[in-house]
């Protein structure tokens, strides 16, 4: 029912596009995107929303922070994305003794060439899984985060471009906090969305137990998209229309976050831009050429949860930022 109406809306929207040739190719691309999402969902069972948000972040050119317990499928998600998209994938396990050079790479003296040669680190990959990012010392963290925001790194005074698309899935463990360095608020902002996976629903978990190992799915998974197609989709997402009414709505959400009683620092203008970007990508995921308030709402909690600073309340339990983001959403009228 839902998708039916959505496709109707999109058909109205798309009919306004000038070039019909362009139209069919776009439709094909979107169909392939749909297939890719379906495949990732077959591998990562029981987290369709998280998968959609991950794709959304990917299309918006942003990075994802997955905060969850070990063993709920963070790595599988990253792997599945990489396989399905036909992208290069590396994993970096962050530890307390990890150095920046271990991430970005190092110049090594080559005896044969009699000069230093740059050995690229694991970050030179299209999809990077930064596992347990909060275990690494701040220096290493910031090396990664800088690379994420700049999309290039500078080693030995030389600037080196990172591959495109460049997509980081970082994970952090919220429970086991001993010996960790929490990411500073300013750097959390580098992640477009913060996703929580949680335990899969019972039925999905049952299926997980029943089916063969995930690894077999991963190896048998075929790449559905490729770098070019993904780039085109990212470009398309950027062109999704945001009407005046919708911008009003986003602005209202931003103001509401700044006026909320439990928030000391609300959403920044940059967060607003990120919200718009993510909403665009989310709209495209639903084959739409324009953003609806529902798109904004779908990404808002994941986007605002790690960007607002909650006022510490010593007497009571500190409220959950996601819950507060949800409150803001509920208190703001759709114009």
């Amino acid at each position: 029912m839902h998708t039916e109406t959505q496709s109707k809306v999109s058909s109205i929207a798309i009919s306004t596009a000038a070039d019909s040739q362009d139209l069919t190719s776009q439709q094909q691309l979107l169909n392939e995107l749909g297939k890719a999402i379906a495949q990732v969902n077959r591998i990562v069972l029981g987290h369709p929303d998280a998968v959609r948000l991950a794709f959304c972040s990917l299309l918006a050119g942003g990075h994802v922070l997955v905060e969850d317990l070990p063993g709920v499928g963070k790595t599988t998600l990253a792997n599945a994305l990489a396989c399905t998209l036909g992208l290069e994938f590396r994993r970096i396990q962050f530890t307390s003794d990890l150095l920046p050079a271990d991430v970005v790479g190092i110049s090594v003296y080559s005896q044969t060439n009699e000069r230093f040669a740059f050995q690229p680190g694991p970050i030179f990959s299209q999809i990077v899984l930064a596992d347990e990012i909060n275990r690494a010392p701040p220096r290493t963290q910031s090396a990664l985060l800088e690379a994420m925001s700049e999309e290039h790194i500078t080693v030995d005074g030389k600037q080196r471009e990172l591959p495109r698309p460049f997509f980081v899935i970082a994970t952090q463990n919220p429970v086991d906090l001993a010996g960790t360095w929490l990411l500073p608020d300013s750097q959390l902002d580098r992640f477009l969305l913060k996703i929580k996976l949680g335990y899969p629903p019972a039925q999905a978990e049952r299926m997980l137990l029943e089916q063969p190992d995930r690894q077999t799915f991963l190896t048998s998974a075929e790449p559905i998209l490729n770098t070019d197609k993904l780039q085109t989709l990212i470009q398309r997402a950027n062109q999704v229309h945001a009407s005046g009414a919708l911008l009003d709505y986003i602005q209202a959400l931003l103001s509401a976050s700044r006026q909320h009683a439990q928030i000391s620092v609300g959403l920044s203008p940059r967060a607003g831009l990120a919200l718009l970007r993510a909403s665009r990508a989310y709209a495209l995921l639903h084959h739409r050429q324009h953003i609806l308030p529902e798109d904004v709402q779908a990404v808002f909690v994941a986007l605002a949860g790690h960007r607002v600073k909650i006022i510490e309340q010593h007497s009571e339990q500190t409220p959950d930022p996601s819950q507060i983001a949800q409150d803001i959403l509920h208190a703001t009228a759709v114009p």
Binding site: T5, I12, A13, H241, S243, A245, Q289, H290, L292
Partner: peptide, 10 residues
């Protein structure tokens, strides 16, 4: 859909 189109579409 007409409303949505009027209000949000390009």
């Amino acid at each position: 859909n007409r409303y949505i189109h009027h209000r949000y579409a390009a």
